[in-house]
Each structure stands twice: as C-alpha cells, then as structure tokens.
Design a protein around this nucleic acid. Structure first.
Length: 262
DNA sequence: ATGTCGCAGAGACTGCGA
C-alpha cells in the first residue's frame, strides 16, 4: 500500500498535475495540503474518475485546506485538532482498512510561522502543542498511525540547503525542531530517514531565485509512522518529477510504501 | 535582496500569505 503527501498550492491550479501524477503513481492514499478552495468546489468527479472514489475534504476560501484522497473507504473522519480552537482548516484524519488492519492517517498543513518572534510564530508554537496532544490521544486509540503533511519544519541541518546561513530563521529554529522531536518522542519515526537517501534531498523549493534549478530547497514535508507500523514500511522517497513540470507546486510529493499483509 | 506564485477584491493593479 502506498500513501503520499503533497502540498499542491491550490487544488484549482494543480488539479491537472494531481491527475497526471496519480495516473503515473496510483497510490492508495494521497494527502493534499493548501487546497485553497471551499468544499463545494472540491473536484470529486474528476478524482473519482482517477480512481479516488473516497475523498474526505476540509477546505476553506483562499488559504489552507486539506484532503485525503483514497481508493478505499475512509472511516472516522475528524477535521482539525480536537481541543484546539482554530479558524484555519489545517488537519484532517481518517482510518483506512488494509490487509494488516486499520491504519489511522493524520494529514496536516502545519502553520508556516513567518518569522521567529512574530504573532504567527506564536500561533505556530501553540498549534504544534495542540497538535501533539491530539496525536498522542489518537495514538492511544490507533496502534498503526501515520502523521504526514507539510510540517513547515526542517528537522535537521541536512534538511536545508543552507543550514548555517539560515540558522534560527523560520523552518530552522530550535523551538520548531524541539516540537518535531517531541512528536517523534510520542513513538513516531521519520520514515524518510529509515532509508539511505541522496544528499541534499528536499521537498520544497522557493519559486524565486531559481530555487529548484539550484536545488536551494528544504525538506519540510514528512511522513511519520508509529512503532506499530514501522516494521511494515518498505520505502519512503521524494518524487521530484512534478516539480519539473510547467506551473508546478513549490512542493514535491513524498511517498511511503507499506508492505501488504505482513 | 526577492527576481515567484495564487488568490481576492477591485477596477485593468495592489496587498497578502507563502
């Protein structure tokens, strides 16, 4: 079974990319962030034709918005963080049945935070604290759990094209990295780091300054798996292919491969 | 230091968020 995450930076603008990518990569679940559309505009028909008959969407106008596209039925859909009031649509969770039992999938568009010291950074910290409590509660109920999405955190120096020059700037601060480690401390594993990866592997590149062409990127899109799921993980990789297409999202998809049966 | 996007509400560009 394959599960992917992709910040599409507007599903309206990127629907052709999603259809082209899923045609070549028919993953079982595709978790999207930054839909930038309301639920009444969600393209259910086009996605059903692409094989995703079971979509759970949580959108809003202009900003944010997340969705889980699935080839299999979804159960127990939850929107946003239980116990944390939020005006933004940033989290959607659902359960999918697999050959080795149910898997809980939590898809998040984490707060960007703009700049350390800003109000938006304070919101990012509060949001991360709220998310952690919610993930902990979900983990208590779901042994096999995936937390994935656009974390807007580069966890380590090797996840940034310029760790020295960008030290303690947004995505790189000690506080953000401590939040990331606190999520791992709940019993989650960064599936990407379970495997050998190319040097300078990133998932996001700025549209400006030829960021992609110069590989000036960050690894901020992650797939964390619970200990109960870890033995079944076969692979995790970034697919840079759609970042090279015309009018791309600034993010590339990350794909997790989980063994069937087991 | 921002040379890029996408969106909204205007008003044929500007501001915002990333």
């Amino acid at each position: 079974m394959k599960i992917a995450t992709w910040n599409v930076n507007s599903l309206t603008a990127r629907l052709p990319h999603v259809l082209q990518w899923t045609a070549a990569n028919p993953v079982d679940l595709l978790c999207l962030q930054e839909l930038k559309l309301t639920d009444d505009k969600f393209p259910h028909d086009a996605l059903r034709e692409a094989g995703y008959a079971h979509c759970a969407a949580f959108g809003q106008k202009t900003y944010n918005g997340v969705a889980i596209l699935s080839r299999h039925p979804l159960q127990e859909v939850v929107k946003n963080i239980e116990g944390f009031e939020d005006e933004h649509a940033r989290v959607i969770a659902a359960t999918v049945d697999t050959a080795h039992g149910p898997v809980r999938v939590m898809n998040g568009y984490f707060v960007n935070g703009q700049e350390p010291g800003s109000e938006k950074f304070a919101y990012k910290m509060a949001w991360l604290t709220g998310l952690r409590a919610f993930v902990q509660a979900q983990m208590a109920r779901h042994e096999r759990l995936v937390l994935l999405g656009d974390f807007n955190i580069a966890p380590e120096d090797r996840d940034s094209f310029d760790p020295e020059g960008l030290r303690e700037t947004i995505h790189h601060t000690t506080e953000e990295r401590e939040h990331f480690r606190a999520l791992l401390a709940l019993g989650l594993v960064d599936s990407f780091r379970m495997f050998e990866q190319p040097e300078k592997s990133f998932s996001w590149w700025d549209y400006r300054m030829l960021g992609y062409q110069k590989n000036r990127g960050l690894r901020i899109d992650h797939i964390l798996v619970s200990e109960g799921l870890k033995p079944h993980v076969k692979a995790c990789a970034v697919d840079r292919t759609p970042r090279k297409w015309e009018k791309p999202s600034d993010h590339a998809p990350v794909i997790l491969d989980i063994a069937r049966g087991a």
